[in-house]
């Protein structure tokens, strides 16, 4: 199994491949992933030029361990085949497939990646996939999409296009995205995949951004697509377990391990009743703290 399937992805920062100034050094802001965009941010008559920039950036720029995801153009365009070839030849880490509505959309890209891997002599299975759900049909088929491929690490909501399809708009309250978010996270979790929220584009409303990010964290999401480096630190703070949470999780894991050996199933930690049902959540908190580099314990 590719170890990157479950890597920490709290922030995915969009960067326009048409702009060399944007893609040369985004790692300094330390997002977990960067999303090198060949799709909507790139003008139709600059798709070719953006690929050359992408290829050399992937080959020559050291992104210091930041995951390099490329958003390719959709299956309804004449660009995606060449996008896949440059992604594979350049050696990106993951490909974001836009406008996914069915499992077969993922299968088409998976096959194109495999073909390109053969063409360029690359190992199969190194490049992962993620699906962007941008329509009502895509949301309704989220489970089918999430289970479509072993190389697919998760799905992401694209709120702008989705709300157009829903015949409403982004209101800032989240009411228009409630259903999609809920369906997606349930589908992703049922498929044991990651799930990412849409962008928040009003950069002047940091309070609104933080509120929305706190909400999607509580809903179960793994992270958020972001459009500006200023959104990284608050998102990481929200998605990184606090010292108190880590301390509690550590006690839960250790107590369950030791009590199990003694034949005790239920007991208390810090005054809370704990049983085996808490184990996976506590382990996940520890894993997340480790991945975020804030765990200093011995588990």
């Amino acid at each position: 199994m590719n170890p990157n399937l479950k890597r920490l992805r709290r922030t995915m920062m969009f960067l326009n491949c048409q702009k060399p100034g944007l893609i040369k050094d985004p790692y300094i802001y330390k997002p977990d992933s960067i999303m090198l965009d060949l799709e909507d941010a790139v003008a139709e008559n600059q798709k070719d030029a953006a690929r050359f920039s992408l290829y050399h950036a992937l080959q020559e720029i050291d992104y210091h361990g930041v995951e390099r995801v490329v958003r390719i153009n959709g299956l309804d365009t004449p660009h995606w085949q060449e996008d896949v070839r440059v992604c594979v030849a350049g050696g990106c880490d993951s490909i974001r497939i836009p406008k996914v509505e069915h499992a077969k959309d993922v299968h088409i890209i998976e096959e194109a990646v495999r073909k390109a891997e053969d063409e360029f002599g690359r190992e199969h299975g190194r490049i992962l996939l993620m699906a962007a759900l941008e329509s009502t049909l895509g949301i309704l088929n989220a489970y089918e999409i999430c289970t479509s491929s072993e190389l697919l690490f998760g799905c992401a909501l694209s709120g702008g296009d989705y709300t157009k399809d829903l015949q409403t708009k982004i209101t800032g309250t989240g009411v228009e995205l409630n259903g999609a978010r809920q369906l997606m996270i349930i589908a992703a979790r049922a498929a044991k995949k990651q799930c990412f929220d849409t962008v928040f584009t009003n950069l002047d409303d940091m309070e609104g951004f933080i509120k929305e990010t706190e909400m999607i964290k509580l809903m179960g999401f793994d992270g958020k697509s972001i459009v500006n480096p200023r959104q990284i630190a608050p998102t990481h703070k929200i998605f990184t377990p606090t010292e108190k949470e880590i301390d509690f999780a550590e006690k839960v894991v250790k107590e369950i391990d030791s009590k199990k050996a003694m034949g005790i199933g239920v007991f208390t930690v810090n005054g809370k009743m704990i049983d085996i049902a808490f184990y996976d959540g506590a382990k996940r908190t520890i894993d997340m703290a480790k991945a975020a580099g804030v765990y200093e314990g011995d588990l």
Binding site: P20, D48, A49, F52, S53, H56, A57
Partner: peptide, 15 residues
């Protein structure tokens, strides 16, 4: 940067 220069030369040639 060098990588951008290369990309622009190649872009111009293939265009």
């Amino acid at each position: 940067l060098d990588c951008t220069l290369k990309a622009r030369v190649e872009g111009a040639v293939f265009r």
